[in-house]
Design a protein around this nucleic acid. Structure first.
Lengths: 196, 196
DNA sequence: GTTATCGCCATATGATCGTATGGCAAAGGA
DNA sequence: TCCTTTGCCATACGATCATATGGCGATAAC
């Protein structure tokens, strides 16, 4: 057999090149040629690792989700024994596009969201991710508020909207975090009030 | 002079055809040919009314914003003397994609949002619209809560996130409205509590 | 040393894109 | 009646797209 290369590494490099293009110029600017150029490869090589553009896109989105999971795990590292409220805040803040890496991921996520609107397979994956996130958030809220399920949906919808505002530059990071903190406080405080 | 036609009507028909394509298959599926076919025109006729694709897109987005204004005005009709809280609720509910028309508008809005992320002109228009909306919402909240500005940003971000969930089918209309109502109640109630 | 296989590449193909161009029918002013 | 203007259309052009194809070193097995 001839020389061996790490296929996974090649695919990752291609996917990252794709993200860069999608984040800076939108998913519609993503073409085999552009991706190949950005990755420093020939078009043929990209074709060699992904039989079609759709396959490449699929791989890139799956890898993106994995990166988000990783980012969440990293953001929550060492908080196993922290107060649920602090875990909750860390989780939600990690979801916001506050640094370059998170911004790229969110931008690509939005681009994929658009595609999901007309692709039931993608939409189902999206919903599943949201449901899982909501479960995690609701878990943090257990005992902190009445109806943790609704509260979780509320917080996630808020984070979603804040992310849009951040991407557009309509909100500053400080403003977005302040809004989020105020909401968390209000939700946890009001429960105390209601249970008194 | 030869026969006269209503240019504005022609342009509107083209824009509506564009919306239909953008809403059902995404903005990237929008091409001169597709729009012409959907509008029941020749490609040349579309070219006759819009010198370029960008010009067509611009017109379609401006008209979209006008339609949203109209929808808001219609949703708030006859509420001039209603309680601010009811006006607020009507305004926010009108922003949600609850019927087919609103859904199309929101879908196109999201598609344009994506483009705005890499187009500073569009982004500026988007931010201006958001700012104006926030001012209207804050106006409704005057006296109902402390810091109406932050409350307005919170509510609009929440509505944004709820809209995403509705588009994807992750939330049902009833669920989204219930979340919104709960939030409005919490915000207005808590202020009463704080000012007591 | 021969050979099969793997990594990779250059180029071709057919489709579709935005846009440019030239012309035709109709209608009203001269 | 002639002529200019307007509305509209068919076609062409160059670019770019996704994808298919054939081939060229290099390497490891034999």
């Amino acid at each position: 057999m001839p020389k061996k290369v790490d296929h996974e590494q090649r695919r990752t490099r291609i996917a990252e090149a794709l993200w860069g293009i999608a984040a800076s110029r939108g998913l519609e600017a993503v073409s085999m040629r552009e991706v190949a150029t950005a990755a420093g490869m020939s078009i043929g090589l990209v074709q060699h690792y992904f039989a079609s553009k759709d396959e490449m896109l699929l791989y890139a989105t799956v890898l993106l989700r994995d990166r988000l999971s990783e980012r969440l795990r990293h953001g929550l590292a060492g908080m196993e024994s922290a107060a649920p409220r602090d875990v909750l805040r860390a989780l939600l803040v990690t979801l916001l596009p506050l640094d370059a890496e998170a911004r790229t991921e969110t931008l690509v996520g939005v681009a994929v969201f658009i595609r999901a609107l007309n692709d039931e397979t993608l939409a189902a994956r999206y919903r599943e991710g949201q449901t899982r996130l909501a479960a995690a958030v609701a878990g943090c809220l257990q005992g902190l508020t009445t109806d943790p399920g609704t509260a979780a949906d509320t917080l996630l919808a808020l984070v979603d909207g804040l992310a849009s505002g951040l991407l557009l530059g309509h909100h500053t990071p400080e403003h977005a975090i302040s809004i989020l903190d105020r909401q968390i406080s209000q939700m946890t405080e009001s429960s105390v009030r209601l249970t008194e």
